[in-house]
Design a protein around this nucleic acid. Structure first.
Length: 293
DNA sequence: AACTGTTGCAACCGCCCAGTT
DNA sequence: AAACTGGGCGGTTGCAACAGT
């Protein structure tokens, strides 16, 4: 019996611990037949003596056919680092940007690989083995030295039928960021590189891109306001764009990411927004896909 | 070969949030 | 408004496998 199987009284009825191949097969069959969701029905439907949470976890973290196995690639680790810097321990959000990777995978990788590396690399960039009291001292010092602002967007509730602009590239497994996301990436994350997720952009949004409706406008407005960016015209797309144009500059400057205003992508994007209004997104798209060194 | 220490990761726990009653 | 329920998340645990002595 698995050691975790005898912790609570409930476990007398429900099986716990490691999953057997027969259980996996039952669960897989059940999900194939009924689809994901309604997890409280899954144990009964599948004929499993497991709790709903256990079934859900097993499926999401192990059985799902889209799950990618094997080592994390260099680009994946790089993206993970950036996202962690931005989001903190929001593993599900980070995993959402790493196709095929689960939140559990990301969390485990971070805890076992990345965190370990961070604590064993000295300030001079030289690898060394640090243990005991010295390790604790380093950790303490490191937490002071690398303090940064973690952006934690609040969950947003939209009314029914809202179409928040979502720029999904059907030809790619990767999510293609919206123009707004590109701007956000460029400024907040200082991401000017051709990372894998940026390289999936293979179309301009000019024709096919839906423009935000009122709820979408509010959504973006709320996001900007969260960063202390305020528009002049309430409730209009132009207002949001105007707000974003000034706000982007402020945000970039606030974060100390734009040393040369004349060549900063945010400034140029902001100018384009101010000049072009709704029709300028394709220009901004091109601009933000170009390299800034 | 036997023992000990370390690592990776699957699984569980407790909590939170949103929706429903 | 309060209680309940389902879904989801981050943190933690502990086992199996591996590496070192």
């Amino acid at each position: 019996m698995h050691p975790k199987a005898s912790k609570t009284g409930n476990s007398l009825k429900l099986r716990r611990g490691a999953w057997g191949s027969d259980e996996d097969a039952l669960l897989r069959k059940c999900i194939e037949k009924y689809g994901e969701g309604k997890w409280h029905l899954v144990p009964h439907r599948a004929g499993l003596n497991r709790c709903r949470k256990s079934c859900r976890l097993r499926w999401l973290n192990y059985l799902r056919p889209t799950i990618k196995r094997g080592e994390f690639g260099e680009d994946e680790v790089d993206l993970m680092m950036r996202l962690h810097k931005l989001l903190g321990n929001r593993w599900s959000l980070i995993a959402g940007r790493l196709p095929g990777r689960t939140a559990n995978d990301v969390k485990n990788y971070w805890n076992t690989n990345v965190q370990k590396k961070l604590t064993t690399i000295s300030y001079h960039g030289q690898k060394e083995v640090v243990q005991g009291e010295e390790l604790n001292n380093r950790k303490q010092a490191s937490s002071c030295a690398t303090t940064h602002v973690v952006v934690k967007p609040l969950p947003r509730t939209l009314s029914k039928g809202t179409s928040v602009p979502c720029y999904f590239n059907p030809n790619s497994h990767m999510h293609s960021p919206s123009p707004q996301e590109i701007i956000y990436n460029k400024i907040v994350k200082n991401d000017n590189n051709n990372n894998s997720y940026n390289m999936t952009i293979n179309k301009t949004p000019s024709a096919a891109t839906p423009l935000p409706d009122q709820d979408g406008i509010d959504w973006w407005k709320n996001l900007f306001e969260e960063f202390g960016i305020h528009g002049q015209e309430e409730g209009s797309l132009e207002g949001v764009l105007t707000a974003s144009s000034s706000g982007l500059e402020n945000l970039g400057a606030q974060r100390g990411l734009m040393t040369d205003e004349s060549s900063a992508p945010a400034t140029e994007a902001a100018d384009l927004i101010e000049e072009g209004g709704q029709s300028c997104w394709s220009d901004i798209w091109d601009l933000l896909n170009s390299d800034y060194n």
